[in-house]
Design a protein around this nucleic acid. Structure first.
Length: 289
DNA sequence: TTAGGGTTAGGA
DNA sequence: TCCTAACCCTAA
């Protein structure tokens, strides 16, 4: 159906990166019409540029792409061409995504016994939001973000997961909103009565219930559950803190690498200039020297 | 014109 | 079968 997909060539990607470098992200029309890039990008619309940049951004965050998950370490400007100045421009790597478990550890939504973390989060959100006409993606996304560490493109992922849940009849779409199907909601609520299962998820459900005022009557089990929940939440907070520190270390490491690369470039320029070579700004920007 | 959500083709 | 890149649609 429709025109066959037109894969982006490396020249086109390069032109896009340079265009963003020159005009900034969001100036897609300007980039597309720029005489410097228009020959390469003639077959692409401004929308294409935007979409491609979006994909590149996701790739740079360590997500999704098979070939450009990491910003390669810039080499010294030798004879081999290096696209590093442009790559450095890509949106900063989001370490939250790196810290998250790989996507491939997910289970199929059909697997009722051990739903994947993301499916669980979505089902949990829909189960607790309980909006009669369903919840919009933004609402679900916000709900999950408040409770879980999510990757930067989670919202987009959420849409895909929701579609899959619709496909397996766990979720239904009402206008632009999503809600659990009646049949699934009933099945999902049943295990809640099982105390062993309740204990497992005590941390989150207790926190959530507190927030929403679901527990109105005091019970001995509730006290124990709350105590356990507090400890689990405490442990989670510490784990999160440790994660953040790890990410900070990684970020600083990357900055050091980038700085080192700039230093090498500066040394190269200095040497060449010392030898009396004349280099234009354009040559330096494109490393064509 | 752009951003963002949604859809679909193609590859692993 | 699942995931991603490319493409499409629509609101602002």
């Amino acid at each position: 159906m429709g025109a066959p997909k037109q894969k982006w060539t490396s020249e086109e990607e390069e032109a896009l990166r340079r265009g963003v470098l020159k005009h900034g992200a969001g100036k897609w029309r300007t980039i597309q019409k720029d005489p410097e890039f228009s020959p390469v990008l003639s077959s692409r619309s401004n929308i294409d540029l935007k979409d491609k940049w979006r994909n590149l951004s996701f790739s740079a965050s360590g997500l999704g792409s098979r070939d450009k998950q990491r910003v390669p370490r810039p080499k010294a400007p030798s004879s081999s061409p290096s696209p590093s100045p442009q790559l450095l421009l890509l949106p900063a790597t989001n370490n939250v995504a790196e810290a998250s478990p790989p996507e491939d550890c997910e289970k199929s939504p059909q697997d009722d016994k051990t739903p994947s973390p993301k499916f669980s989060m979505i089902l949990e959100a829909l189960g607790e939001l309980k909006e009669p006409n369903g919840s919009e993606v933004t609402t679900i996304c916000n709900f999950i973000e408040q409770r879980h560490e999510v990757q930067p493109n989670f919202r987009r992922l959420l849409c895909a997961k929701l579609r899959r849940l619709i496909g397996v009849n766990k979720v239904e779409k009402i206008d632009k909103s999503y809600k659990l199907t009646d049949s699934y909601a009933k099945r999902a609520l049943a295990p809640m009565k099982d105390p062993s299962l309740k204990k497992k998820d005590s941390a989150k459900s207790s926190k959530a219930a507190k927030g929403q005022g679901l527990f109105t009557a005091a019970s001995p089990a509730l006290g124990a559950a709350e105590a356990a929940a507090t400890k689990v939440a405490d442990a989670e907070a510490k784990s999160h803190l440790a994660n953040e520190h790890m990410m900070e270390v990684e970020r600083i490491g990357k900055m050091a690498e980038e700085t080192e690369s700039l230093l090498e470039l500066a040394s190269e320029l200095y040497e060449r200039c010392s030898r009396g070579e004349v280099l234009t700004i354009l040559q330096v920007a494109h490393r064509e020297f």
